[in-house]
Every structure is written in C-alpha cells, then in structure tokens.
Amino acid sequence: MSVPAYTAPDETSTLATCAFAVHLAASGPGPFPPALSGHAGGGEPRVLDAGELALIVQSVPAAAFAGEALAERLQDPAELERCARAHHDVITAAARTGPVVPLPLATLYLDDTRAVAAVREREAQFTRLLNRLHRRTEWGLKVTSTPGAQPPADRPAGETDRRRSPADGRAYLDRVRGRQRDREHRHEAAWRAAERVYAVARRTAVEARRLRPQDPALAGAGARQLLNAALLLDHGTEARLRHAIDQLSTDPAIADQARIELTGPWVPYSFARLDEEAATDGLQ
C-alpha cells in the first residue's frame, strides 16, 4: 500500500496510466461509446490485455493526479463529484458485456506496462472474483426512520403538562418518564423494523453486507438512517427482491416506523473486494 518511491514529475506533460476496472479478456466491452471520456484532461479510455484478463485504463496528466494534487482537488465537492462520476461511467461502460472488478478511484501507474504487471500478479484472485460476480448485480437497500411518529394521544405535550398539574410534581415526572419510554419504544421498534427488512431482503440475495451509514443530514429532519446495505443478486431475480420489499412496506409494523428505498442495479462495487479474496486465500 505504500510505494512512495514515485515522485511527482515536474513537467505537466508527463502521463500516467489510470486504471478503472479489470474484466475477463473474453468478455470485453467492445468499443466504448464516443461520449465516454473518463477523467477530464485525460486520453480516451482504452483496454490493455493482461493474459486471460484485461483492464480498462486512461492516460492522465500525472501532475494533476500525483501526490497531493488530486487529494487537494477532491476537497472541492464539485470536483469530487466529477471524478466519482467519470470513474463510475467508465466502469459501468465496461460492465455492459460481462463482470468487472472496479478498482479504486484514481488507481495510477507510471505506465501501461506497470498496470498490466500489477493485474497479472493477482490473476488468480481476479479470476475467482470475476467468476463469482458473473451475471450478478448489486442493489442498494436503505431504511430510514419515519420522522415524527406520533406519541400516544393521551400524553399531552410539555406545555399542557405544566398548566394542568403545576403542583403535582410526581405526576409530572411520571409523564416525563412515560414520554421517554415512548421514545425508546419507538426507537426500538424502528430498529427492529430495519433488521427485519434486512433479514427478509437478504434471503433473496446471494450475498449481503452493511455499508457505512450515510450522513444523518440526508435522512431529513427528525429521521435516522437505520440501514444502509448492499445486496448481490443473480440476474433476473430482482423481482423477488422487489416483491419482498413491497410486502414489507405494506406491513403496518414496518410502514409506521420506516421508509424503505431500493437503488440499483449497480456494478457490484461492494462485493468486488480483492482484500477479502486475499483473506480467503489465507484461510485455505
């Protein structure tokens, strides 16, 4: 992971090879759509042969990507979005005709030869992973708590409490505790709903994994993200997932607590983990 031997070139004209994805040579994507341009300032996306495998690369100006330059650029949200979308566009184009292993954003090599060598070094792992992803796609499953679930009607709001029983401190405290309990119960019910959604949905999938929860701000005021997960589905089985989600979402025990969102199909980013392949190797 740490190869600091490379130093950023002085000349802005120096090119580096940016690798996007690895696929089986036999299931190449063919010509890319003309609109596919990869990262701004780079050459056209192209395919490099690496034996049974092939990789999609693009020549990019090294100065714009090397060292701190890209890291700094990505602090700008607009630039981050451009880079992420450019990366994603190339990967999805590559995935039209067969499985791909997406590489991390801005995986850079000094030149094509080095890029090919890096892939060849891990040919067996890539091949196993590609076989596992064959005819499978990723779906995103998110569950968000429904904001403003109402407390039971017999519990008045705080203002009313004080007016109704200014003298009865004990009754007031009871009501406060009651509201606290209600909140906890709602909280618990919401988490249980999310867990049930995950348990049911993953039965339709080949694999499932939880992703890092997204920023709470995105869930909206008063709402919480209860689940952010990825499912790996065999092609043609998404109807089962949709059916399961539709059933869950009409169940009042869930509908009262949470909103379910499905996104996809995605290239199986969340399941194309070479580090885990390596870990599996270690166990064998």
Partner: peptide, 13 residues
Amino acid sequence: TGVVISGDVVIAI
C-alpha cells in the same frame, strides 16, 4: 472500493 493493487502512485484517496 478500497483495494489498491499496488499502484505506482499512491494517493490518499
């Protein structure tokens, strides 16, 4: 997608 396959230029991404 955090797997860097020994890129020559390691970026902090």
